[in-house]
Simulated assay, not measured.
Amino acid sequence: MSTGSEPIPLSAVQHAVYCLRQAALIHLERLWADNRFTAEGDVLHAVADKGGTRRARGVRRVLSLPLASARLNLSGIADLVEFLPGPGGETPFPIEYKRGRPKLHRADEAQLCAQALCLEEMTGAPVPEGALYYAQTKRRVTVPFDAGLRALTEATVADLAALFAAGRTPPPTGQRSRCKACSLIELCRPDSYARPVRVWRDRMLARALADPPTPEAE
């Protein structure tokens, strides 16, 4: 079980913005379940996870770069960081690979911003923006690390620190629409997950009782 003294995983920021209970189930209770979405994400990250450094058009590109922030007690791995050359030195530009397409919520952006906060602390250089690469659209979406996103990210990290220190999983989210795509729905909401099966069973049972089969004549 995670404790307040252990670093908060960067991935937990994305989980917590999406659903704090999901973050607790994964990072406190160590529960995980794969579905189609998580499997697609695993395939997408396979290349980045190989690591390595490359140069292209004067840009240093580092795959699978370890990151950490002592101030925020964060640690994790960046899929890709491009170090852009400039007159004042290199400017880090983090890039996170995601399956699907851009979301209506800011969970992906907050995870990327958390990487930027780590990079700023590690390099001493400002990180004004980064990008999310979505596999479905095959395009980068530039993410400015403005004051609002930084505030959301730091507040989420504070929520996670309190969550880990308390060691208690919060109740299910009221935003039930987010549960549909969550691989943990069967573990988080077993009654909700099983409801369609029960409805079908009860309907079939009621139909059978209302119109019982006629025994064949001997």
Rank of each mutant, 00 (worst) to 15 (best):
C113N: 05
A114I: 01
P128I: 12
K103S: 13
I95P: 00
P144G: 05
P102E: 09
A155E: 03
G130M: 07
F145Q: 03
Y133P: 04
Q115G: 09
F145E: 01
E96H: 08
T153M: 08
T123G: 09
R168D: 11
Q111D: 03
E154I: 14
L104R: 11
L163K: 02
V143P: 05
Q136Y: 12
A161R: 15
Q111E: 13
A155F: 00
A131T: 02
R150H: 09
L119C: 10
R101F: 14
Y133N: 06
A162R: 14
L163W: 02
P102M: 12
G124E: 07
E120V: 04
K138L: 12
R99D: 08
T156I: 08
E121R: 08
G100K: 06
L112H: 02
E121Q: 12
L132D: 10
P102G: 07
P126I: 00
L149K: 00
Q115I: 01
P144Y: 06
G130V: 05
E120W: 11
G148C: 02
D159G: 07
K138A: 15
P102L: 10
G148V: 00
Q111P: 13
A165F: 04
I95R: 07
Y133W: 15
A135I: 02
P126W: 00
V141G: 03
F145G: 03
A158C: 02
A166L: 13
E129N: 07
Y134E: 11
A161E: 04
Q115P: 00
A166Q: 14
Y133S: 02
A165R: 15
P126C: 07
C118A: 08
K98Y: 06
T142P: 07
G148E: 13
T153W: 04
L112C: 03
T137M: 01
V141R: 07
R168Q: 14
V127F: 14
R101L: 11
G167T: 02
R99I: 09
L152D: 01
R168V: 15
E154V: 15
F145A: 02
R99C: 09
P144H: 03
Y133M: 05
Y134T: 10
A114Y: 01
E121G: 11
C113I: 05
H105F: 09
E120Q: 15
T153P: 06
L112S: 01
V127H: 12
D146M: 07
C118D: 09
D146K: 08
A135K: 03
L104I: 07
P102K: 06
V143M: 10
C113A: 15
Y133I: 04
K138I: 05
R106C: 03
L104S: 13
H105E: 13
R140S: 12
A135H: 11
R139W: 02
V143R: 10
E120H: 11
D146L: 06
T153D: 00
H105N: 15
M122F: 09
A158V: 00
R106E: 08
F145S: 02
L152A: 08
T156G: 10
P128E: 12
T123D: 00
